[in-house]
Structure formats: structure tokens, C-alpha cells
Design a protein around this nucleic acid. Sequence first.
DNA 1: CAATACATTAAACGATCGTTCAAGATCGAC
DNA 2: GTCGATCTTGAACGATCGTTTAATGTATTG
Lengths: 220, 220
Amino acid sequence: MRSSDDRTTAARIRDAAITEFAARGVAGTSIRTIAATAGVSPGLVIHHFGSKEDLRVACDEHVAGIIRDVKGGAMASGGGFDVTAAFRAVGEIPAAKYLARTLVDGSPHVAELVDEIVRDAVGYVATGVETGMIKPTEHEWGRAAILTIWSLGALVLHEHLERLIGVDITADFSQDPTATTAYMAPALEIFSQGVFTETTVQLMREAFVSQRSAQEKESV
Amino acid sequence: MRSSDDRTTAARIRDAAITEFAARGVAGTSIRTIAATAGVSPGLVIHHFGSKEDLRVACDEHVAGIIRDVKGGAMASGGGFDVTAAFRAVGEIPAAKYLARTLVDGSPHVAELVDEIVRDAVGYVATGVETGMIKPTEHEWGRAAILTIWSLGALVLHEHLERLIGVDITADFSQDPTATTAYMAPALEIFSQGVFTETTVQLMREAFVSQRSAQEKESV
DNA sequence: CAATACATTAAACGATCGTTCAAGATCGAC
DNA sequence: GTCGATCTTGAACGATCGTTTAATGTATTG
């Protein structure tokens, strides 16, 4: 039975930490809990990683590595800026949940990683525009950033999304057509035809301009 | 000087707790920290709220109350399903940040609250469709849910959004036209014209159908 | 086989945690 | 002005936290 888990003890501890940190946050997880999940003593956790903070950094770096692998591998065949799709494709569910938590908890490396994902999205979108798949825009960076944030935001709020539409985007639902429809269909619709009518766009543009000129008056 | 703060001591403790919980999470915040922020002794916190968990519930309910007020007041004049706009309009920044944290930490009341926001969004969108402001859809619930999740997701990831495009959506930037442009312009663009071209939509639809029929074959 | 390095554990340490408690301080009611 | 109720504090309690330490087990190596 042991042959079914060929990971190092240190790797098992690290993976247990990733799971626990993802579920309860770093502050909400004790070393004793991680040790219990990994089936070792608390002292061994410290022996292998030095301290809780160092263990957290090790988790950070490991998940960051997975993300970079996933991006390199499944990017071209997938949805581009939809990071969550890449995770599902590779089956790295704990890493996805860890990222979701860490995006809010904050960590030494996650900000850097998000910037990286957005830069990739900019490149992906630019290619899409060149090949006529994606509409051009004045706000290249802003649009890529917002699309990425929305995608990551859905990942972070996966529990709510699951409750709302019955789809866990941190799980592999590629075999479940119902789930695919519930999540992908409305998103695809928004991304293709938008939600506002021409009338609304015109109204908002006018309101925006008038607000702006009013502020210019104020500031004089 | 004391006249500048007419809140009850209990209210000051509660507000301090909301701020600290929002910044560091519930597990990452000690009662002693809250007491220090409120300028009282740790014992007094317990005396007024019974326990840390009860204090958390009190924060939950207070913020939920603020959100319901905000929804009722600024909904009609604002962006509809953009919850964050409502917070800025009323100036309840700590409540917004508390909600952002609690959406991920989980709490006894937040799920209920999210469902409520989505139901409101469905109603708002339906009205918009009737008056010709919003495009109709097959997926009423799904679209409203996803739009709400995106909006809340941006709130949750406000720190990353600020770093990426220089706009803190938990702050009142109504006086800052640059910030308004950076965030609102791309979002409005996506919501009006979409991001995918007709070619892409057609391709995705075909891919979706073929995937589906392949799965139907499989399941036979 | 002896020696050495590494893996691992149980026990304990000091710090901090949420909470309790006893004792003042403050206040309104009679 | 006295009394009871409420507000507030400082000290302390037991539990749990991250971490250390000493000891034992288990390989590896010459």
C-alpha cells in the first residue's frame, strides 16, 4: 500500500500544508494539524522546513512552480486568460485552492505571480486580436487586468459559485456537460455579445462626459 | 476631543474588530489586538460580546445591516449589480473590506447575503431588460450570478487590482477621473461590446457542440 | 562491523491565545 | 447619600501555539 505514495516525507508534509493552508488559511492552521494530516510528528515539520513561515514560503514556491508549468503547458489549448481552466486541465486542484486562499491572505510571492499572469494575458489577448479572434481595445492593459481579476475572483469565490450555480470550478467538470453549460454558457455570452444595449452605452458615455466636465469646472 | 466620537464603547470595539478582521482575517486577529485598537482592555471585549465567535457574529450582522441599507439606498441611482459602487457611494469602506475578507473566510451569514445580492441582481437585470437597457438572455440566473461573482471577486482582490491598474475599489475614487477611467472604461467596454469576435463565438459554439455529442456517444 | 549522518519522535519550553475572576470605578435611582 | 447595576481594569488560568531539545531509530558509508 505504501508503494502507492512515492513522495518524500518532506513532500508529503508540504502537500498536507498546501491542503490545510488552502482550507483554513495560514493563521488558522497549526503545525500540529499539518503534522497530523501528513502522519508525522510536529517536530518533524520544523526539522524539514525550519519554521512555519519557511514552510509557507516552500508551499508558495511549489504552487508557483505548478502554475508556471500549467501556464506553459495548457495555455495554447485552453481558454487563454481563464487560469482556472488550466488548473482543471492538469488536475492540480489543491494548488488551485491554495492560490485562491493565498490571493487574499497575501504572501511573499503571489503578487508577483498575479502580475505574471496578467502579462501573459496581455500577450494572449494581443495574439487574439491579430488573428481576429478578439476585438481590439484602447485599454489593452486594463482589459487584460480586469479579465484576469474576474477569472481569479471566480476562483477565490468558488464556494459561492458552486452554491449559486452548482459548479465547482476548482474541480474537474469537463465530464459534466450540465456544469459546463451552467458556468461557460453565460460567461461566453457576456464575452461575445456583452450585456448592455446600445442605448445604455450611449447614456453611460454621456453621463461619464458630463461628470468629467463638471469635475473640470470644480477643479478650476 | 472625546465629543468627536459619540459611539458606544461596544460600538467602538465592534468597529475595531471589523477593521482588524478585514485586515488580517478572524484567525489572524487576537482579542488583545482588537482591544488595543479600540483602546480598552481585553476583558471588556468579552464582557460586551461574550466570546470571540459572538463578536464575529456581531460584526457579521452589523456589516450585513450596512449592506442591506446600502442596497436599498443607492441601488436605483447606481450601477445595479456593482456592489462595490454602492459601498463607495455610502462611504462604508471598512464594511466593504470586511465583506471582502469574510467572503473567503466563510461566516455564518455571508453565504445568505451573497444569495440575496444575486437575487437582487436578477431583479435589477430583469428590469433592465424590460426597459431596453440590458440585453435579454437564456441564462438569467447564471448571468446574474456570474456578474455578481465578478463584481465581488474584484472587491475581494482589491489589493491586486490596485497594484495592477492603480485603482482601489474599496476607496472613494469618485473625485479621481483617472482612476474612474482605468477601472470603469475597460469594464464598460466589455459589458457593451464583449471581447470575442463573431468568428470566435462561432468556433466555440461548434467546439462545444462536438464535445457534447462526443460525450453523449461515450455515455451510451 | 563500526562510525557517522540523517530521520523521527516524545516531551517540554516559553509565548500567546481566549477567557475568567475579583476588585475598583462610575453612574442612575430612590 | 446610599445602594445596586453597569462599565472597566489588571491579573491570572488553562489551552494551544511555534519551537527546542534530547533521545532513539534507521539508513549509509568506509
